[in-house]
């Protein structure tokens, strides 16, 4: 059996890639994909814990996370489309009306 730590390290690596992507990339849609990557890395950790502990709470939480992520994507893409219609860009460096 593959030990728990492998799942956790993979999950941590994916989470870190997601965080770095959010901080470094400038395209709103790519940032959004990186956030989804963070959520999915959490799902991996939850499933790993669940099979290691031997109860089903973690797997149940994964389903809730999937639903919430889907809702967030639909709202997020709608907002990005609204921005694109007004400004013709999704680069977050150019979306800077509000500051100080």
């Amino acid at each position: 059996m593959i030990p728990l730590s492998w799942y956790l390290f993979l999950s941590l690596i994916l989470f870190t890639i997601g965080v770095l992507g959010v901080l470094i990339r400038r395209n709103a849609i790519v940032i959004f994909m990186c956030i989804e990557l963070m959520l999915n890395s959490v799902n991996l950790a939850l499933v790993g814990f669940s099979s290691y502990i031997g109860n089903e709470i973690g797997q149940m939480l994964v389903f809730f996370v999937l639903v919430v992520a889907a809702a967030e994507v639909s709202v997020g893409l709608a907002i990005i489309i609204a921005i694109f219609r007004n400004r013709l860009t999704v680069n977050i460096d150019e979306i800077n009306l509000l500051k100080w």
């Binding site: 965080v19 709103a28 956030i35 959520l39 609204a82 977050i92 979306i95 800077n96």
Partner: peptide, 18 residues
């Protein structure tokens, strides 16, 4: 301005959710 507020809230809020 409102669009921008929504986008910023969404990106940082979802980031925090992670």
């Amino acid at each position: 301005k409102s669009n921008e507020a929504g986008l910023k809230y969404l990106l940082l809020g979802a980031f925090a959710t992670g």
